[in-house]
């Protein structure tokens, strides 16, 4: 399930202020420790894991702000 894979990557790349299991899919990752620098780490790891490339048009805070928004972006890129 891709949600679990996304969660695993988020937990690995972002220094979160809470345990990943306490974070819901819609929580704002930026208020939980995601920074602009770790956003890039997160992006690169997701690209590797799902074998996708983020379109420049998707590179904004909105895309990376929650597990749900990441899942939507990945879905769009896998279509």
């Amino acid at each position: 399930m891709s949600m679990d894979r996304i969660r695993a990557i988020v937990a690995q790349t972002v220094k979160l202020s809470k345990d990943i299991s306490d974070i819901s899919d819609n929580d704002d990752l930026y208020s939980l420790g995601l920074t602009s620098l770790t956003t890039v780490n997160l992006m690169l790891s997701i690209e590797d894991e799902f074998d996708i490339e983020f379109d420049d048009n998707m590179l904004s805070r909105q895309t990376f702000e929650s597990i749900t928004s990441l899942a939507e972006a990945i879905d769009e890129l896998q279509d």
Binding site: S36, L37, V40, M43, L44, E53, F54, D56, L59
Partner: peptide, 12 residues
């Protein structure tokens, strides 16, 4: 510094 990280992410 901010631009440097964003530069890695963008393609063009």
């Amino acid at each position: 510094g901010h631009n440097a990280t964003m530069q890695v992410a963008i393609r063009e």
